[in-house]
Design a binder for these strands. Sequence first.
DNA 1: CATGAATGAGTTTTCATTCAT
DNA 2: GATGAATGAAAACTCATTCAT
Lengths: 198, 198, 198, 198
Amino acid sequence: MTKVARLYEGTETAGKREAILNAALRLFTERGFHGTAMPSVAELAGVGAGTIYRYFESKEALVNTLYRDWKNFQITTILKDVPEETPLREQFRIYWNRLVEFAAEFPIAFGFLELHFHAPYLDEESRAMEERGHNALVSFFQHCLRQQIVKNLPPEMLGALVVGAYVGLVKASRAGCFQLTQEMIDQAEACCWEAIRR
Amino acid sequence: MTKVARLYEGTETAGKREAILNAALRLFTERGFHGTAMPSVAELAGVGAGTIYRYFESKEALVNTLYRDWKNFQITTILKDVPEETPLREQFRIYWNRLVEFAAEFPIAFGFLELHFHAPYLDEESRAMEERGHNALVSFFQHCLRQQIVKNLPPEMLGALVVGAYVGLVKASRAGCFQLTQEMIDQAEACCWEAIRR
Amino acid sequence: MTKVARLYEGTETAGKREAILNAALRLFTERGFHGTAMPSVAELAGVGAGTIYRYFESKEALVNTLYRDWKNFQITTILKDVPEETPLREQFRIYWNRLVEFAAEFPIAFGFLELHFHAPYLDEESRAMEERGHNALVSFFQHCLRQQIVKNLPPEMLGALVVGAYVGLVKASRAGCFQLTQEMIDQAEACCWEAIRR
Amino acid sequence: MTKVARLYEGTETAGKREAILNAALRLFTERGFHGTAMPSVAELAGVGAGTIYRYFESKEALVNTLYRDWKNFQITTILKDVPEETPLREQFRIYWNRLVEFAAEFPIAFGFLELHFHAPYLDEESRAMEERGHNALVSFFQHCLRQQIVKNLPPEMLGALVVGAYVGLVKASRAGCFQLTQEMIDQAEACCWEAIRR
DNA sequence: CATGAATGAGTTTTCATTCAT
DNA sequence: GATGAATGAAAACTCATTCAT
């Protein structure tokens, strides 16, 4: 059983709701929001078409739940348990590895979050979650800036470059350009740090 | 200059085909392929709904034409007129600036190409065009590798990191995180080079 | 007193069947038969959706039970305890007052019976009940005709005019056009008698 | 060709819109608003299901158009060309006859207007039209009251009794209780006048 | 050529009814 | 007996595509 499924397994409500969310995650990622028909979600989830509406008010509610849950999970997974006193260079390494691990362990969710970044059908709450991730990123680079260990550039720009490189790397590896070994991940991390370090 | 480029010039000379491509570019970028109704494309283009089908066999044919035309235009624009003997470090600077200029001059087309990267409704020919861009990128970094001026990493990976950083930068600036000045563009270019240089 | 009547009394003694009939009466009257969802009936009745089907075979069976019970109750209430020897003019007064009282005491049931008059989903038995009320009406006016105290018109027509006036009066008062006082009820009764008396 | 059809034939838009309105009029009257499926309207109208939505925004818009058009037509038909100086007793006779004629010539529309009186899906504008008819009625009886030729009762009540009797009469004749001859119509008119005259 | 009205297959969503608990 | 989650058929509505004008 993959970890993908496990995000939606902990609760005792169990079963249908998780099946729907997992089916929707896959189909929305593969075909996009408007390209996915609700009956196809139901079929993949192994439930009746009407059943989805017992758990989610609408298709939009479904995609938003998915976005919030996964974005929240991603942020939590990446930020958890890093002692404040850890050197920032070391923190950078940790976050980088966690980002890559997240994409490796939850490839569909990674694709989903990428595809739905800033999508017009995301609601207030989903956007707030997006914002939360963004703030954590900016906050880290502000910290780096204060310690003068990175180039004197806007923290948003530093974040954009590093996260952009991360996304590019993962997408390219997923497109089959290369297989990501731990060595390559480490090398990429080194590249990114060198890109921004003072 | 191709017809694709002319779409963004004066509309008085534009034929119906251009008007349709123009309208479709905007709507597909804003709402996605499945989220865009053909009649809405017709309306924005100022033509009858049936007229689209005189120029394009289907909605898929339209999006593929758009993808091919713009991808081709992007590749051509970025690669043109760089003498082989130009130092690679200088070539890198040129390509970087052209990428950023392209995104600035054709922001909708940039968004369109990003959004439709690897979309399931793109056909063989469109994928071949994608491949062509990819090959040019890889080829450049192979050249760099042979001259041992960049880190000894797969050229696809070097490309992924740099282009990823570029995409991240442009998207962040478009999301309103910051305004891209020439100085920042130059600084970002320096970052990217430092990321990969040996 | 039948169970139908008891529905409008204290709810603490009411069984589930009564609760369902009560809820259905209100919702069918407010939103119509097809406009009312069975789960909404269940919710208002405070029972599970499946429970309705322990008491009624289908939605049609429910509306027919309701129609029959209330039509029967209406007829019974209006006709009861009028000695045959009572002068017909006096009987007319009695019936008129009982009709108005019925509409005042059971306004929802009055609306329900009006709305469902001749509805296509009423079954044989419900139509027979409708017929029974009609026959009582016609029979009364035949009696009047035999005594030559009313105009020499078909009894059905006399009934239609008087009952029509009654329905019009009640509906108008319910629409808020005026408040029905006993004086007005008496005056209306006088009008109706003058309409048909010889 | 019946007059029912003719209400929607005068315009040069012709054809589909009228066919849809006429089909909807029949089905809404026979089965009610919620009991009528849009595809069944389309089928009876002899058009595609999607075509209805080229002419009417929604099912509600369709029923409201129908209600407004017919209510307006009814009011106009009944009130037209009655010189102010006509004696009120004579006006009463004219209006009565026109009401009955309307119901005879447009039996489905009569049923439609009766069934949808005060329906919850009627919009502001439709209710305003309802009000307009009501006002004309009240206004007539106020005139009668001022001339002291009718009983001293609220004009709304006089109207409710007379119109109620009219509706009862028509409904009964339509239910097959009797065939309405001109003689009977005249007699009914006499009844109604006697009901309210001073 | 250009149009846009017309279409019907497909979409999202609802709801009468069932059935395992 | 009572429940309410589950269902799938059918509802309202949309839209890619066609074709008569």
